[in-house]
Structures are given as structure tokens and as C-alpha cells.
């Protein structure tokens, strides 16, 4: 830089160089700074509502921080140690994965099938396509309350119907598997159509001539589906699977409202308490912010791990 250059006597006294005119300086500033200003809104917003809370949560998780406590006590990784020894957390994790699998797996398979049906030549095509989106438009809370009624253990419609076909009533609140099925059905009801539409959009982007070539080669419709449609859907499927994973692992509203008494325990013995519900209970019933933050961070790590795993599996499986 300039420091390495020796001073050259240009026959003038070492006076301050006249500053460039104001307008020039402004335009110089403009070219240098304004690009950053243009991209700033995203980074400022992301920093304020994305990054800062994320890091601050990590900070809070190192304290025994009760809402309203006078002095939060620094306890290092103690919250995490307690968490890994906490049966209720492992139970919540099991429930989350169980509900996630019961909802995501059938959901994506059915969504692909529905998309394939909608992609065919149908009468009133747009009507059908809009139709599958209807459950998504309905309010989540209203939907959950209605499903809660349908799956009522004593006076619910589902048990009445099961009774007609000779199956004993299931206590959808008491049984672990039963409650998971009930909650997964709410998720599937709401999201299958939405995912079907995304997949349908991707299907329509597949070039027609590939199918024509396959037809000329004598490939059956089934063969076309497995050898052309599915592989060409790969990027979209990865997207759908990852968003489903993130959503599925964060499931909260459905189990929260499924509890008839309005509590956050997720059933009398936490039969359907998910990780986020446990987080909520710790933070806003137990008022233990430090512990809740630790749960939030562990969940964050799990979501990343599962999303990455899904990404690699999907990339390999769908070739």
C-alpha cells in the first residue's frame, strides 16, 4: 500500500490535497455503498428475526433461566445433559418421528399418485386441481378441532363407524399408536393436496417428446411412469420431502389442540407429546426458558440431520 512508497517531492509543499468536489464524492459513495444497501433488507431482516434469535437461543440455553427470575444462573451445558437423561424428551422424540413417518410417507406416495391422475386428460381439470387444495385453504385450528371431535374416544364419529363394521372402539386419547394415527390423519388431510399440486406442476414441465419416444419404443404406461416421470421429478421430490421433513418434525398445532383439556402435556402420559409441544410446555408452563432453548437447539440439529439424510437417500433412490 501507500506506506511502502517513498515520498516524491513534486516541488510543492506537503499540503492537504484538495478534497474531491462534493458531488463526485457522493457518486463514488453511491457506486461503493448502494449495492450493499440494496441487499441489506434481506440481511437485516434475516439477522434480526433469523440469525439473532438462533444465536441468542443458544446463549439462553446455557443458563438456568426462569421467566421472571432475578438472576439467570450460568450452568454451561447442564441443560443439555439433563435433556439427554430426560425420559420425557426421548418419548417426545419418538412420538415426533412416529407421527412424522405416519404422515409423510403415505402423504408423498399418495400425492404422486394424485398428481399423476390430475395430469391425465380429465373433464373439468381445473376444478379437480383446485379441489385437492381445499383442505389446505381451511383453517388449521378449525380442522384440528373437527378432527378432535371425530376421534373423540366416547362420542366420536370414527368409533361409531368402526362399531358398525364390528371393530371395538379405540381410545384415540389413551393409546399411543391410536393417537398418532389420529394426528397423522390431520396432517395428511391438510397437506396431501398441496404436495400433489407441486408435483403436478413438475410433471407438466417434463417434455412431451420423451414420452413420445417411449411410446414409439413400446413402453407401457406403468413403465413410462417409473422410467420417465419419477426420475424427472427428482428435484421436486427432494424439495417436497425436505419441506415435509422440516414441517413434520416441528409438528405442534395438531397435538396441542388434540388434547381435550387444552393442556400441553400431549395426553395423560405424553402419548402424543411432540418435541415442540414439550418445548412449549417447558417454556410457557414450566417457565424454564433455558431448558426450552436447549430443546430448541437439539431439535434444530435433528431437523438438519434428517433433512440431509433425506436429501442423500432421495438423490440415490430416485435415479
Amino acid at each position: 500500500m501507500t506506506a511502502t512508497l517513498s515520498k516524491v517531492d513534486r516541488g510543492r509543499a506537503q499540503e492537504a490535497r484538495p478534497r474531491p468536489p462534493r458531488r463526485y464524492r457522493l457518486s463514488n459513495l453511491d457506486t461503493k455503498v448502494s449495492p450493499y444497501l440494496f441487499v441489506a433488507p434481506f440481511f437485516v431482516l434475516f439477522g434480526a428475526i433469523g440469525l439473532f434469535p438462533l444465536l441468542y437461543t443458544a446463549y439462553v440455553s446455557l443458563f438456568d433461566w426462569e421467566v421472571g427470575a432475578d438472576e439467570p444462573l450460568f450452568i454451561g451445558l447442564e441443560n443439555y445433559r439433563t435433556l439427554f437423561e430426560d425420559d420425557q424428551f426421548w418419548n417426545a422424540l419418538f412420538n415426533t418421528f412416529s407421527i412424522f413417518l405416519l404422515s409423510s410417507a403415505p402423504q408423498i406416495v399418495v400425492a404422486v399418485l394424485i398428481a399423476a391422475l390430475l395430469n391425465a386428460n380429465l373433464r373439468a381439470r381445473t376444478g379437480w386441481r383446485m379441489g385437492v387444495l381445499l383442505p389446505y385453504v381451511a383453517s388449521l385450528v378449525a380442522l384440528t378441532i373437527i378432527f378432535g371431535n371425530l376421534f373423540g374416544p366416547q362420542y366420536g364419529l370414527v368409533n361409531d363407524v368402526l362399531g358398525i363394521i364390528g371393530i371395538d372402539p379405540i381410545d384415540w386419547q389413551a393409546s399411543t399408536f391410536g393417537s398418532h394415527v389420529a394426528i397423522a390423519s390431520m396432517v395428511n388431510w391438510r397437506w396431501t393436496g398441496y404436495n400433489a399440486l407441486i408435483i403436478l406442476a413438475a410433471m407438466q414441465a417434463i417434455p412431451r417428446d420423451v414420452y413420445e419416444a417411449a411410446l414409439v419404443d413400446g413402453a407401457s404406461a406403468l413403465r413410462q411412469f417409473f422410467s420417465i416421470t419419477l426420475p424427472m421429478l427428482k428435484p421436486t421430490l427432494i424439495f417436497v420431502i425436505i419441506t415435509t421433513t422440516i414441517g413434520g418434525l416441528q409438528i405442534f398445532t395438531e397435538p396441542k389442540l388434540f388434547e381435550p383439556s387444552g393442556g400441553s402435556g400431549g395426553g395423560t402420559e405424553h402419548q402424543y407429546q411432540t418435541v415442540v409441544l414439550y418445548l412449549y410446555q417447558s417454556a410457557f408452563q414450566g417457565l424454564d426458558l433455558g431448558y426450552a432453548s436447549a430443546i430448541a437447539w437439539v431439535l434444530f440439529m435433528i431437523v438438519i440431520a434428517v433433512a440431509a439424510l433425506n436429501f442423500f437417500i432421495t438423490r440415490r433412490a430416485v435415479r
Binding site: 428475526i49 434469535p53 441468542y56 415442540v276 417454556a283 426450552a292 432453548s293 430448541a296 431439535l299 434444530f300
Partner: peptide, 8 residues
């Protein structure tokens, strides 16, 4: 998550 964290 982020909603809850914001609240926290």
C-alpha cells in the same frame, strides 16, 4: 420454532 424463540 422461530415464533417460539422470538417470544422467548
Amino acid at each position: 420454532i422461530s415464533v417460539l424463540i422470538c417470544a422467548a
